[in-house]
Simulated scan of single mutants.
Amino acid sequence: MSDLILHHYSSSPFAEKARLMLGLKGLAWRSVTVPMMLPKPDVVALTGGYRRTPFLQVGADIYCDTALIAEVLEARQPSPSLFPAAVAGQARMLAQWADTDLFWTALPYAMQPAGATALFAGAPPDMLKLFVADRKAMSEGMPQVRGRDAGAALTQYLDWLSQMLADGRPWLLGDAPCIADLSVYHPLWFITRTGPLAEILAPHEALRAWMARVAAIGHGERAGKLDGAEAIELARASQPRPAQVEPGQGFEAGEPVTVTPYDYARDAVAGTLVGLSCRTVTVAREDGRAGRVHVHFPRIRYTLKQA
């Protein structure tokens, strides 16, 4: 069962990044729409509690975090590369900055009253209130920039990005798009949906032209939709790929462990350690609905502990 199945929802910025990765690779994928907020019973059956959007399913293997999804897609379809050799290190570092500092500046800027009103236009009256409560719980205890501070920081970030394009290059790191472009794009894409707050992008003509080029990459080939129950049944009918715990990592295969994001949505996933390197961690889980699944995480920005 090797179909790529993306679990996502349309307005998720990180899901937009994943969709563009699939588009850049020219890959076909199947779509499962997940809820924006808890409860997410079908998600939990597959991930064991990881609640961020999106995640990628390949049979009984579940890949969490767009940083890891990028590596999975690169291995599956090496060309065109998300990590061109000449700029691979720069691309990864810029992508990490975009997924953290830029995203966590753009989000509070976008969720100011005027932006939130635009984002939730036409939604049921209580939807915004429920969404804010859900996201507040996700980010509890996490230092965040707010309101005008977010606007001031974002103004500087947009200036920096515009300076990268000032020499006329089509993409942030040269002549070809890469993971840096897709990672920087998704927080700015979210801002374009915020009505009057999107005017912060208006002075940046070169940056807006670059955004149009990124959007034109598209989302690849949508090969059909599944619902959550169908995706779970597909996992149950599959066998996860073998994994290996490398020596010298401080853990042993077969140990009960937890994996927890250390910045936000800090829901621990518990399982048996079956794969570990300096780049990834894999836990095996037995679920009453999904059967045996392997849930994969990146090592960066995740905490691995003995249970």
Rank of each mutant, 00 (worst) to 15 (best):
M1P: 09
I5C: 08
I5S: 01
Y9T: 13
S10I: 13
P13C: 05
F14L: 12
F14H: 14
K17F: 00
R19C: 05
L22I: 10
L24P: 01
G26F: 01
A28K: 11
V34G: 00
P35H: 05
M36E: 08
P41S: 08
T53S: 15
P54M: 11
L56W: 10
Q57W: 04
T66Q: 03
I69E: 06
V72D: 02
E74S: 01
R76E: 04
S79R: 14
P80F: 00
S81L: 03
A86L: 08
Q90S: 13
Q90V: 08
A98Y: 01
D101F: 04
W104H: 14
P113S: 02
P113L: 07
A121C: 02
G122F: 02
G122W: 02
K129S: 11
L130D: 14
L130N: 14
R148D: 13
R148N: 11
A152H: 03
A153R: 15
Y157N: 09
L158Q: 06
A166K: 12
P170M: 09
P170T: 11
G174S: 12
P177H: 04
C178E: 02
A180V: 12
L182W: 01
S183C: 06
S183K: 08
L201M: 06
L201Q: 01
A206R: 15
V214S: 08
R222I: 15
R222E: 15
K225Y: 09
L226M: 12
L234A: 13
R236I: 09
R236Q: 11
S238Y: 09
V245C: 12
E246A: 15
V259P: 12
D263Q: 13
R266M: 09
L276G: 13
S277R: 10
T280L: 05
V281M: 14
V283G: 09
R285F: 01
R285Y: 00
R292H: 10
V295A: 08
H296V: 10
F297K: 13
R299N: 06
R299I: 14
A307M: 08
A307K: 13
